[in-house]
């Protein structure tokens, strides 16, 4: 309970920064912080393996990929972003605030009906591996195919287009 009370506000503060900061690199670094704090929360909840996967995939790969993409591309001007956000911020708030109220109210009401079990559910890596490669084996194979296709597709999208050789001049 105590890690939850400490980590939850920190996660939300980092997420607010990621959603609000005008400078793109700051927003991306705050996203990395938010993702790593979510990983810590998973560990605190007893899902140690998922926390490890969160660190290695989200923080180690996705967040760093986003930071490098920002470094490769030229981010737009901060002042321009601030002016634009004044125009887009209010409609975005008008869309997300009712959703937040609805989700928060529903979840809060429903969660009051659930009683927290006294003992932490066991998450054995051996059992997880057995389930993954027996009951969920088709899903694991489908995921492997998807990731291979994504790897090839991303490489094809991101590569520099080859320049066509100029035809030799007649002169």
């Amino acid at each position: 309970m105590i890690p939850l009370l400490i980590l939850t506000p920190a996660i939300l503060l980092a997420a607010i920064g990621a959603a609000w900061k005008a400078r793109p690199v700051h927003a991306a670094l705050l996203l990395a912080l938010c993702l790593s704090l979510v990983g810590c929360l998973y560990v605190a909840m007893g899902a140690h393996f998922i926390g490890l996967v969160q660190f290695s995939v989200y923080v180690g790969a996705v967040a760093i990929l986003i930071v490098f993409s920002l470094l490769i591309t030229r981010p737009s001007d901060d002042d321009e972003e601030k002016v634009r956000r004044m125009k887009t911020g209010m409609p975005a708030l008008a869309c997300s605030l009712p959703l937040l109220v609805m989700l928060g109210f529903t979840m809060f009401k429903q969660s009051a009906l659930l009683e927290a079990p006294a003992d932490e559910p066991a998450m054995s890596l051996k059992v997880l591996g057995e389930i993954l490669f027996t009951d969920y084996a088709p899903a694991v194979l489908a995921m492997a195919v998807l990731l291979t296709a994504v790897m090839i597709g991303a490489a094809l999208f991101a590569r520099e287009p080859s320049k066509k050789p100029e035809p030799p001049s007649d002169s």
Binding site: S76, T88, P91, A92, C95, S96
Partner: peptide, 17 residues
């Protein structure tokens, strides 16, 4: 709250990344 913040970022940002 995290979901609503994500939605806010998607709707308010103009930088694709």
């Amino acid at each position: 709250i995290l979901f609503a913040l994500g939605l806010f970022a998607v709707l308010s940002r103009r930088n694709a990344i």
